[in-house]
Design a protein around this nucleic acid. Structure first.
Length: 570
RNA sequence: GCGCCUAUAGCUCAAUGGAUAGAGCGCAGGCCUCCGAAGCCUGAAAUUGGGGUUCGAAUCCUCAUAGGCGCGCCA
């Protein structure tokens, strides 16, 4: 990797010039302004403090040393107040293109994560509740993280952590049991949507919570009738879950462990908290951990009716995952609104000295709302995931009809483009930002969108399809000179690995998404101004073909890490 | 009341403490005998306000103002 090599070279130059000093953290970054080179470092500015010398003096010494030892750099510039800018040699860039194209399957892959298991929990659908646009974020970000981890050699294990337990489910049980014959018949005919109606109607009853809690307590204690109904409802909902996941093209889940699957592990944890004095029993019989003086309020593990809370179930989940998978990291893709909850979970687990707490992380994301306000089933302010997917595909199909009416497999492509737009919309935003979902923006196919990148890929592939055998040689001449745009495009295309590394650092898929957009933009600029097939100089033509192969490959790889398909034609 | 988060162009969003704050949409204009116009090119337009730290602040600290969210024996 270019950046890593540079970083090492700089460290070495520092040691050669200044002896065996503790080298402070410095950065090697990609300057925004292309005139500042392919890479730049602030090493001298940082060193100025430790060495108590002026940055410009340090820079002068370092640049000479770097220039002498690194022939792959065409030019090193020293710029006040103390930056060093690096420009790579064309020869080096050409050699690297060739390296990538000789082994395209390996492009973007690494073994950084070998031997490390990462749990990734996302999607978290609830029983008898229709998935809606709000579920997109968890699903799409989680899926992208899993794909990216896999590509770097990690063993990523995904789990939906289905919401199949708790008072909400009790409410459903209560409503179902007192439903009349007609209602039950309707439910039998179309179980999933009718159960949703049932749940929503039940919630309007002010007694719902009270009766729901009672039914849940019965369920948890093993009541035969409740168990039977529960089992049936879970099955129906799981089918729906699978359907939504496959519609979105998510990777299949490694585990579908619902909250209910931890019920047998919970009593032992309760006993442990009481024995260790971490929790106490209230007069009413609830089990709570008092975290008031840490600013975390009270954590309730068991309610006074003896039923469990999801906090207790989450504790059991950490324990299970650590014991069963021995994870290196344990990630929860959950809305930022639950950060208080996760702080409680992790704190209680810490007090219990659970293993894996420090490796567990709430990878929070901003919540999505609609222009009309927060997404709320109760207020009817909701857009189902199904409707969004349908609309996305429909709009893509319309655009194809208009722009490329003869396209074969138009329906398949419409699916890829529509879903691609939807996913990219989500993934291109900073994970922590709240998002307002607007149809026209989420399903736009122009500008900074998934289809723009897909389109760029299709254009590049279209050029490559038109090449004849005699255009294709096996090696790129390493003597030709590149112009500024060519140089930038190669350098950008070669940065895939570095970008993946950055994106994984803090689990931010938008870093990858933005990189792909910028690369596609540069590629567009390139093929609008540089003829490829019409280029008369054979060496140049050959180079440009290699260049667009590299870029096309990089775009396709990058998109695939985001879970977006790149059609060859669209 | 206590806690967390946010404030960037008309709108929606970018920007590991770095150099001239980037895009898209919208707006004003230009480019299809020329590898696909879902495209390209040009233009106008922004860091909520005050202090501080730093060689350097949209970014860190602090105060103010305005929003959002959480604090339930819901998940």
């Amino acid at each position: 990797m270019l950046r890593a090599n540079l970083k090492n070279a700089i460290s070495e130059a520092i040691r050669n010039k200044f002896g065996d000093i503790a080298i402070p953290e410095f950065s090697v970054e990609i300057p925004e302004n292309p005139e500042h080179g392919d890479y730049a470092t602030n090493a001298a500015l940082i060193l100025a403090h430790t060495l108590k010398q002026s940055p410009m003096e340090i820079v002068a010494l370092l640049s000479v040393e770097l220039e002498a030892k690194n022939p792959e750099l065409r030019k090193i510039e020293v710029v006040p107040p103390g930056f060093i800018n690096f420009i790579l040699s064309d020869k080096e860039l050409l050699a690297r293109i060739e390296g990538v194209l000789q082994n395209p399957d390996e492009w973007g892959k690494s073994k950084d994560g070998q031997g490390k298991t990462v749990m990734v929990e996302y999607l978290q659908l609830n029983i008898a509740k229709r998935p809606h646009v709000g579920h997109l974020r968890s699903a799409v970000i989680g899926d992208a993280i899993k794909r990216t981890l896999d590509s770097q050699g990690y063993h990523a294990v995904s789990d939906t952590h289905v919401g199949d337990w708790g008072t909400q489910f009790g409410i459903l049980l209560w409503a179902y049991k007192q439903a009349d014959k007609d209602t039950k018949k309707k439910i039998e005919e179309d179980p999933f949507s009718q159960l949703e109606v049932l749940y929503q109607t039940a919630n309007k009853d002010e007694n719902a919570n009270e009766f729901g809690k009672a039914e849940f307590a019965k369920l948890e204690k093993g009541d035969t009738e409740n168990r039977k109904i529960w089992q049936w409802m879970v099955e129906i909902s799981m089918e729906k879950l699978e359907e939504s996941a496959s519609r979105l093209g998510l990777l299949s889940f490694d585990e579908h462990k619902g909250e209910s699957s931890y019920e047998n592990d919970m009593p032992a944890i309760v006993t442990l908290t009481l024995e260790k004095g971490v929790a106490k029993k209230t007069e009413e019989g609830a089990v709570i951990v008092d975290l008031e003086n840490e600013g975390l309020d009270q954590a309730i593990l068991v309610k006074s009716d003896g039923a469990s809370t999801y906090l207790l179930r989450d504790l059991a989940t950490i324990k299970y995952r650590k014991e069963h998978w021995n994870f290196w990291k344990n990630l929860y893709l959950v809305d930022v609104r639950q950060s208080h909850h996760f702080k409680q979970v992790f704190r209680v687990a810490e007090l219990l000295r659970f293993e894996g707490v420090n490796e567990s992380e709430h990878v929070e994301y901003g919540f999505m709302s609609l222009p009309t306000g927060a997404i709320s089933t109760r207020a009817g302010n909701i857009i189902s995931l199904e409707a969004v997917c349908d609309e996305a595909i429909h709009r893509a199909r319309e655009v194809i009809k208009e722009k490329n009416p003869d396209l074969e497999n138009a329906n398949v492509v419409a699916h890829k483009v529509g879903i691609g737009a939807l996913k990219y919309f989500d993934l291109s935003h900073n994970r922590r930002s709240d998002i307002i979902f607007k149809w026209d923006e989420a399903l736009s196919f122009e500008g900074n969108t998934g289809p723009y990148i897909q389109y760029t890929y299709a254009r590049l592939k279209s050029i490559l399809r038109k090449t004849t055998d005699q255009d294709v040689e096996h090696s790129v001449s390493n003597t030709i000179g590149l112009d500024s745009l060519e140089h930038r495009l190669v350098a950008a295309g070669l940065r895939l690995g570095e970008t993946i590394e950055d994106a994984l650092e803090d689990f931010m898929p938008n870093i990858l998404a933005n990189y792909l957009y910028n690369l596609a933009k540069l590629a567009n600029e390139f093929y609008h101004s540089h003829p490829v097939l019409q280029e008369s100089d054979p060496a140049k033509k050959q180079f440009r073909l290699s260049l667009i192969s590299l870029v096309a490959l990089t775009l396709a790889k990058g998109l695939s890490l985001l879970g977006i398909d790149a059609p060859e034609e669209m």
